[in-house]
Design a binder for these strands. Structure first.
Ligand SMILES: Nc1nc2c(ncn2[C@H]2C[C@H](O)[C@@H](COP(=O)(O)OP(=O)(O)OP(=O)(O)O)O2)c(=O)[nH]1
Ligand SMILES: [Mg+2]
Ligand SMILES: [Mg+2]
Ligand SMILES: [Zn+2]
Length: 576
DNA sequence: GCCGTTTTCGGCCCGACTGTTTTCAGTCG
């Protein structure tokens, strides 16, 4: 089994959990967690970096020690430090940490006082009333533990951004009617436009917190109130989505929004900058001693540590602070920059609209162009087009363009990449089109080498313009297929193929880190709806969010180009 | 364990809510 970054991240997280339960230095624990996060979010494969003997300590948060451990894990598949910890403590002990309300200290006590180290033993101990007697525990804690065990199902579930939006917007509207309310902002990972969110984090400003909080917990979708104070409260909605509310006064709006938007790692980094300047940042403001010196706006918070305002999508402590210091923040692409959509389906395959209907919907959105890219024949479940049907569609589009004003319909196809990397339609047909999207829809299980070879070969076909949903993942359902994205991006540059950022909320594929790599290599990204009905154009906003998380500027995105520039790019490719 | 125009050693973000406590530890954001 080849080692993936995720495997290494899990080793570090497990070491962190075990060390923390043992009571080790909290900063050492944090170092392991930070490293796990960096490894997980790294666009490159550590296995390959090790094979090329690259210097891993260049990765922030990875020093000599953890670099050595990464080498060890890649080369031997195990980590002796972890094995040793697992011999010292029961390996199933960290599973107890997943219960809300149980942290390292309590898990430590449960193990050392009661010899409890898994959920079964914990349930028995709680039912027998043995937990309440432990120092620091009581009857309430014992009862909560029992409840938590029974509600254990799905406890770590994350929600797709688009799903969370359906709960967030009405709740925000509801809160806007609270007594004395001023602003309502959805913060947290939602504001950072992360592809999935663990909860909703909502910030309100008001003179007094209590009335807002009372309205919040009275929302009719609230299933359970987890905590409730005068400045914050947490609830779980019937859907299982947790919502955290924070209320501060107007003067603290900027500082609170910055705090609640995160990310945690970004907050720590910004607050550390403040400490070095003799300042303190919390959710109420920026302070020099007792005196508040900033905090009404986010800009004022950043300015206090010598930085320009940083867009929320970048706030992951992945280099945005250094870029801000150097004046090198990207000018991120916006939804309004998009001039058209290069991936959509008509009812010829598995879409719902006629060509005319799609064209008119696209025009109504203000697009200059829309590409019809139905599936090819191998995808029989989607009524994929064969040569004859595709050529007929080409003629229909030509006729339609002759009749339509204000929108150009581009002739395209989403052609299947077959297992050997050849395409599902002959070149002579592809040559008749304005653009060709190549897509993997089968054999997700190929080895990394074979999958990479397959896709690279498809990209070598001179007619291929775009690579669809490059990792094939479906969020929460299907893992990305194993492929060498570094080589794909390099091939895209060499062949002048653009990479799709599929904006469907279940795909959001390219990943943000790969957008960043594409940009660094000068590879264009196309933000495509993959619409199967005209409503799906709304998904483009999620694609733009992801692109922004990937540091993309307008110039990095193919479909921000006006029609004439797009056409000359397409034709220029063909000519070369 | 990481990191550095304050440092290669000694720091490492800061606060709310709960339950158990008689002044605060633990957990979480
Ligand atoms: N300063 C500081 N802020 C934190 C800390 N933990 C969380 N926050 C802030 C930043 C987070 O973005 C925000 C909301 O916390 P969440 O736990 O909901 O995280 P976030 O929304 O970023 O991700 P999520 O998708 O919910 O898992 O609160 C912390 O330890 N220190
Ligand atoms: Mg959150
Ligand atoms: Mg939260
Ligand atoms: Zn498609």
């Amino acid at each position: 089994m080849p080692i993936h970054n995720e495997d290494i991240a899990r080793v570090f997280d497990e070491i962190a959990d075990l060390l923390e339960i043992e009571g080790d230095n909290p900063f050492r624990v944090r170092a392991y967690r930070t490293a796990a996060r960096r490894v997980r979010e790294l666009g490159r494969d550590l296995r390959e970096m090790v094979a090329r003997d690259e210097d891993l300590t260049k990765i922030p948060g990875i020093g000599k020690e953890l670099s050595a451990k990464i080498h060890e894990i890649v080369e031997t598949g195990t980590c002796r430090a972890l094995e040793k910890l697992r011999r010292r403590l029961p390996p199933d002990l960290p599973e107890l940490l997943r219960l809300p309300g149980l942290g390292p200290k309590r898990v430590h006590a449960l193990y050392h006082e009661l010899d409890v180290h898994n959920l079964e033993q914990l349930e028995r101990a709680a039912r027998d009333g043995r937990i309440r007697g432990l120092p620091g525990f009581g009857p309430k804690t014992e009862a909560r533990i029992l409840e938590a065990i029974h509600a254990q199902l799905d406890v770590t579930r994350r929600f797709k951004l688009a799903t969370a939006a359906q709960y967030a917007e009405p709740l925000a509207e509801y809160l806007r009617l609270a007594p004395g309310i001023d602003q309502v902002e959805i913060a947290g990972s939602y504001r950072r436009r992360k592809e999935t969110v663990g909860d909703l984090d909502i910030l309100c400003t008001a003179k007094a917190g209590r009335p807002v909080i009372e309205r919040f917990v009275a929302y009719d979708e609230v299933d359970e109130v987890l905590s409730q104070g005068t400045t914050r409260a947490s609830v779980v909605l019937r859907s299982g989505l947790q919502v955290d509310l924070r209320v501060v006064r107007k003067a603290s709006y900027g500082a609170a929004l910055h705090y609640f938007t995160g990310s945690r790692a970004h907050n720590i980094a910004i607050r550390t900058l403040a400490v070095r300047r003799g300042l303190k940042i919390n959710e109420y403001g920026v302070f020099r001693g007792e005196r508040r010196v900033a905090g009404k706006t986010e800009e004022s918070v950043f300015a206090a540590v010598g930085l320009p305002w940083i867009p929320p999508e970048l706030r992951e402590n992945r280099g945005e602070i250094e870029a801000a210091q150097a004046g090198l923040l990207p000018n991120l692409v916006e939804l309004d920059d998009l001039r058209g959509d290069l991936h959509c389906h008509s009812r010829a395959s598995d879409g719902t609209g006629t060509l005319r209907h799609i064209a008119e919907a696209a025009r109504a959105r203000g697009f200059e162009y829309i590409a019809i890219t139905d599936h090819s024949k191998r995808l029989t479940v989607a009524h994929g087009l064969d040569e004859r049907r595709l050529l007929r569609q080409v003629a229909e589009i030509d006729a339609l363009n002759a009749r339509l004003d204000g929108i150009r319909v581009l002739k395209g196809v989403e052609v299947d990449i077959l297992e050997d990397g050849s395409l599902d339609l002959p070149d002579r047909v592809l040559a008749r089109l304005d653009l060709v999207i190549a897509a993997v829809h089968s054999r997700f299980d190929l080895s990394r080498a074979a999958q990479t070879r397959r896709i690279l070969r498809a990209m070598d076909n001179p007619h291929v313009t775009l690579l669809a949903h490059p990792t094939g993942r479906l969020i929460g359902e299907r893992e990305p297929y194993d492929v060498d994205m570094t080589r794909i991006i390099r091939k895209a540059r060499e062949r002048r193929v653009a990479l799709e950022l599929n904006a469907h909320p279940e795909r959001l594929d390219l990943l943000d880190v790969h957008c960043q790599m594409a940009r660094e290599e000068g590879v264009l990204v196309s933000i495509n709806s993959d619409a199967h009905s005209d409503l799906d154009f709304d998904n483009l906003r999620f694609g733009v969010g992801q692109a922004r998380r990937g540091w993309l500027e307008k110039g990095d995105v193919l479909n921000t180009r006006p029609l004439d520039e797009l056409l000359s790019w397409l034709h220029g490719r063909k000519a070369s």
